Structure formats: C-alpha cells, structure tokens
Amino acid sequence: MKSKRYVALLRGVNVGRAKRVAMADLRKLAGDLGYDEVRSVLNSGNLVFSGPAKPQDQVASEIEEALVLKLGVAARVLVLDADELAAIVAGNPLLDQAGDHSRLLAFVLSSPHATPQAREALEALCGRDWQPGAVALGERAAYVWCPEGILASAAAAALGKQLGDATTSRNWATLLKLHALCAGPL
C-alpha cells in the first residue's frame, strides 16, 4: 500500500487554558492509530506523519475520535497532505508585504471546494480596504497580513467570523515549519 505524508491541524488546542494537549501524548495517539514518522511542531497542536494513503477526512475523523476517547479532548481536526500544504505555501500572494511571519496568517479552508456563496463572501472580504493590513484568497487558504498584531486585526476577526468552523488558522512561521517537516523523505 502506498504511503502518504499528512499534516494534521487541531483546531483550538493549546490556545489559552482550554483543550490542553501534551505534544508527546498527541504523537503517541497518532502512533497508536498506526501512523509513523510522527512529529509535532512546538506546542501548537500540529502534527506531521506518514501512513497509508486514504482520504484526509477519514484520517481527521480517526484522530478526532481518538482525541476524545484517549485524551478527553474534543477538537476539530483538519488534515492536509504534503502536496496541499506545499500549494498553500506557494500560493501566498501577501509575502512581499508581510515582513513579520508571526503576523501573517493562513486560514486553511476545510475543503478545497468551497461553495460559490462561501467563495463570494470571501472574495468580498478580500476586496475591502484593510490598510495597513491585507487579505487575499487562494485555492485552499485565505491569507491575512496583520501588521499591527493578530488580535488587533479587523480583517482576521472578519475572516474568522465568516469562516467559523470551516477553517483553522496558523501563522506563517508555523506553516513554514510544518512544510519543512513534510519535505523530508518518506
């Protein structure tokens, strides 16, 4: 069976005091599910791992279920394959203006096939003037430059409200670390 590299992004884990998960426990959980080469990035609720090629939503469901059963934490999990993450990284049109990668966000969309209505709403947000920040839409992610900080960004707040549970966001520095881990051999 063909092996595939995956990236799991856990929504709302280790943000503030809620949904605390030790990365060692998360890595063990993925290993117990039969995945290998399991690595985490910081204390961020992000994993890179390898395993048999199967639909990402199936992998996400396995991890979500195990999180509740083994760790007592309910969290949505968004799973990408390494190629999807590479496309998100390559498709960021805001890199020229974003000097601080910790203030550049990617809202990863849960599905590459957003409904026309959802895409229209996102395009409307992209068309607004967010100076000094900016918003852009790619195939699988919406990008937000927050030069005055993420918490102060009206654009990030509007995008989060518009997308709700259909997304999880990561700062650019974290995405680049995940991308680097994916680049290693299978």
Rank of each mutant, 00 (worst) to 15 (best):
E148M: 08
D25M: 01
M23A: 04
L175N: 02
V68L: 15
A154M: 00
P93T: 08
D165L: 11
A134K: 13
R17A: 12
E64A: 14
H179I: 02
K161V: 08
V7P: 03
V89D: 04
G164A: 08
G127F: 04
L105Y: 01
A8N: 08
N92Q: 07
L151G: 13
L151S: 14
A166F: 04
K19G: 02
V108L: 14
L178K: 00
G138Y: 10
A155E: 09
A154T: 02
L42W: 07
T168P: 05
N171L: 05
D96S: 14
E148N: 12
L104T: 02
W172Y: 11
D81F: 04
D83W: 03
E120R: 14
Q58A: 12
A75V: 04
C146Q: 08
V21W: 10
G160C: 09
L69N: 13
A66R: 11
T167C: 13
K4I: 02
E148D: 15
A114E: 15
N46A: 04
V73E: 10
Q97C: 07
G31C: 09
V41I: 14
A156C: 05
Y35W: 13
R39L: 09
W130E: 12
V59R: 08
A90I: 04
N171V: 03
L33Y: 03
D36A: 12
P147M: 00
A30Y: 01
K177M: 04
C126R: 15
T174Q: 09
L159P: 00
V41D: 07
L105S: 07
L29K: 01
V48G: 09
E62I: 01
K54R: 15
R119G: 10
T168W: 06
G184M: 02
T167K: 01
A8D: 11
H113T: 13
D96V: 12
D96L: 07
R39F: 06
T167S: 15
G72E: 07
S3W: 05
E65G: 03
V68Y: 00
P52Q: 12
S40K: 00
L69A: 15
L176T: 04
D25L: 05
S40G: 14
D57V: 11
D165E: 14
S61W: 08
A158R: 01
S111V: 04
K19S: 03
R27Y: 03
P112C: 08
L137K: 11
A158Y: 05
M23E: 04
P132C: 08
R170A: 06
Q162M: 15
P112D: 12
V13I: 14
L178D: 09
A90R: 13
E139D: 15
D100Y: 03
L105T: 00
R20C: 01
A180H: 10
L178A: 05
A152G: 03
V7A: 12
L78P: 02
A53D: 13
Q58R: 14
D129E: 13
A8R: 07
V68I: 11
K177S: 13
G72Q: 06
R170L: 06
V7C: 11
Q131H: 13
P147Q: 12
A60G: 08
L137W: 08
Q117W: 00
G149T: 03
V68S: 13
V21Y: 02
A136R: 04
N43L: 00
K161Y: 11
M1Y: 06
D81Y: 08
I88S: 06
M23H: 02
A124T: 11
A157F: 06
A157R: 12
H101V: 06
Y35L: 13
K54I: 06
M1W: 03
D100H: 10
A121R: 15
L109K: 12
R5W: 02
